[in-house]
Nucleic acid binder design. Sequence first.
DNA 1: ACCTGAACACCGTTCAAGT
DNA 2: ACCTGAACACCGTTCAAGT
Lengths: 183, 183
Amino acid sequence: MREALLAAGRATVQAHGYNALSFRNLADEVGIKSASVHYHFPTKGDLAAALARRYTEDGAAYLQQLLATSLDPVWCMARYVEIYREALVNDNRMCLVGMMSAELDDLPTEVRQEVEKFFAMNIAWLVRVLTLARPDADEKALADRALAILAAIEGAQLIARGRQDLAAYDRAIAAYRVAGLMP
Amino acid sequence: MREALLAAGRATVQAHGYNALSFRNLADEVGIKSASVHYHFPTKGDLAAALARRYTEDGAAYLQQLLATSLDPVWCMARYVEIYREALVNDNRMCLVGMMSAELDDLPTEVRQEVEKFFAMNIAWLVRVLTLARPDADEKALADRALAILAAIEGAQLIARGRQDLAAYDRAIAAYRVAGLMP
DNA sequence: ACCTGAACACCGTTCAAGT
DNA sequence: ACCTGAACACCGTTCAAGT
């Protein structure tokens, strides 16, 4: 039941955001009453924090697997931008944490901490990939570049979603490559 | 009164989003009853569409003024990134339309149209600025580059907001320049 | 022209009660 | 251990009524 709630909750947040996440709708989706959802997740903040934590865990596992498959930075980056593209393909959804970033002011502190952890995990992975491309590069410069790449990809996803135009995502990513922002 | 509602509504959406926009809170802020807000804006969608339209109008007027002041692309881009930076400085707020893009699935069609218009207006202005830097460049390449710059800036704002870290915005923008993404 | 109170079906949260 | 119904103060929307 807990897993069913997490699955339904993730889909809802990626499509409609934290504020649109409803205990009543969620309960209907999994076939229990809204008061019962509070048994598994006492507050909406607990649920959202669990969603973000699981999202980061799943993402970290997948990214680790990528680097275990190949140490080619171009290939790894291509797989990385595909992750964010898939969310758009999948019913114009957004990165769960990107969505929560927009709604940050409405999030309890425990959820904000998970938002921070997701970004830190992604940046650490991007630094590893960038290091493969430029092993001699300055550590701080790579960290800034990793942050910029993450921000640029999240932004491309946000704009493509706002315009309901998947091609806009592809064009933005292509322009990033042309400019030399990412491998 | 209409203007007071638009001002209060803009601040709320930039801080909390469309879903958190409440007729009752808005009414309290301007000193009327919630039912009276519906006299000025029949539905929440009408209010949101008016907010986005006004936001685009104000932005267009400011950007036009920039180009009337100087035709230096580096100076114009520096002023442009400052706009998005100011939103963060101002209580960690976000671009009103970037916020709405995240919440797109919850927006009525009339609001989505205004979201589209805002992006089109920004891209058109960026193409003009890029043309000043590279007058001989391919039209389509400039349009893609303009889209990429807009997306990258929106993303930098989103990530900086999510991390509650203004310096992250500055680092991302600096990295965009180092990579050669923007003038 | 502009505002109001009351009603409606929603929301998260709490709690005593069920199995 | 897990679920429920009922209550509370919220939400957008509608409408008849006021000035």
